[in-house]
Simulated scan of single mutants.
Amino acid sequence: MAVIWEHKWKILLGVALAITAIIWLLLRSYPAGSLADDAMAGEWSDVKDENGAIRFIAEGEPLGHVMYYPGGLVRPESYSYLASQLAEAGVETWVIPMPLNLAVLGISRGEQALGLIGGSPVVIGGHSLGGAMAARFAKDHEDQLDGVFFHGAYPDEGGRLDGTSLSVLSIQMEEDRVLNSESYEEGLGYMPDAFFEEWIEGGNHASFGDYGPQRGDGEATISHEEAVEQIVDLTVDWLESLQ
């Protein structure tokens, strides 16, 4: 009998280890690249950790305040280069870390940063899954926000914005093969009547962050720096329209 139980425990242990390995593979996050690492450590960008959020402080009076939800399984530090360039352009930016790097598990995380932000305009958005969850947050905090932005993302029914007065900026990439085109078209129906839609030529889904190639994505023909430059220009123009 003891031998039988020993075999059973070995089998159960093997199954548990196999399940653990599968979960680890499924939830393995994309690491930040060298540009993002440099942005985190760069002297030209003042980076502070406030209530778990990574804050990039703009010099002088901010042009606006951005709260950023990372894409699914992408580490928040991966957006540091984008955030630092926004800060250089005068936009205070908060990158919000998520449980297990999944914004669906931390939709309310933006409340931490929102409570510390003074001044306006204040906008929220994010990349991919992060953008969809940011829209859900915005729907429930409309009176505290001025706008929502989407990076390779779109609202779902739970974050529909067509009944709000929020301004919306949608930035998409020409070579994005991760974005589901049918779902994107459906998401357009949840947008306000008037919103800004911009497409960047040569960029792909991973162009919004510095975390390397993403599975199933198209091939970018522009660098991350070039993509970020255009994202920043579009964002600054949008924020100026909200003044």
Rank of each mutant, 00 (worst) to 15 (best):
M1E: 08
K8A: 09
I11K: 01
L17W: 03
A18L: 03
T20E: 06
T20K: 09
A21D: 07
W24S: 03
L25F: 14
S29M: 08
G33L: 12
A36S: 11
D37F: 00
D37K: 13
D37L: 09
M40C: 11
E43Y: 15
E43K: 14
G52N: 11
A58S: 11
E59H: 07
H65V: 01
M67H: 12
P70R: 06
P70V: 10
G72F: 09
L73Y: 06
V74C: 01
N101P: 04
G106Y: 02
V123R: 05
L129V: 01
G130L: 04
G130H: 02
M133C: 00
F137Q: 07
L145H: 11
L145G: 14
D146Y: 14
F150W: 00
H151D: 05
A153V: 00
Y154G: 02
Y154V: 03
P155W: 13
E157H: 02
D162W: 07
T164G: 05
S167G: 14
L169R: 03
D176C: 12
S181L: 09
S181F: 00
E182V: 04
E182K: 00
S183C: 01
E185Y: 11
G187A: 04
L188K: 15
D193S: 11
A194P: 00
A194M: 05
F195M: 10
E197D: 12
E198W: 02
I200E: 04
E201Q: 02
N204I: 07
N204H: 10
H205V: 07
F208V: 01
D210M: 03
G212A: 01
R215Y: 05
R215W: 04
D217T: 02
T221I: 08
S223Q: 11
H224T: 03
I231P: 05
L234E: 13
V236P: 09
D237V: 01
W238G: 13
S241A: 08
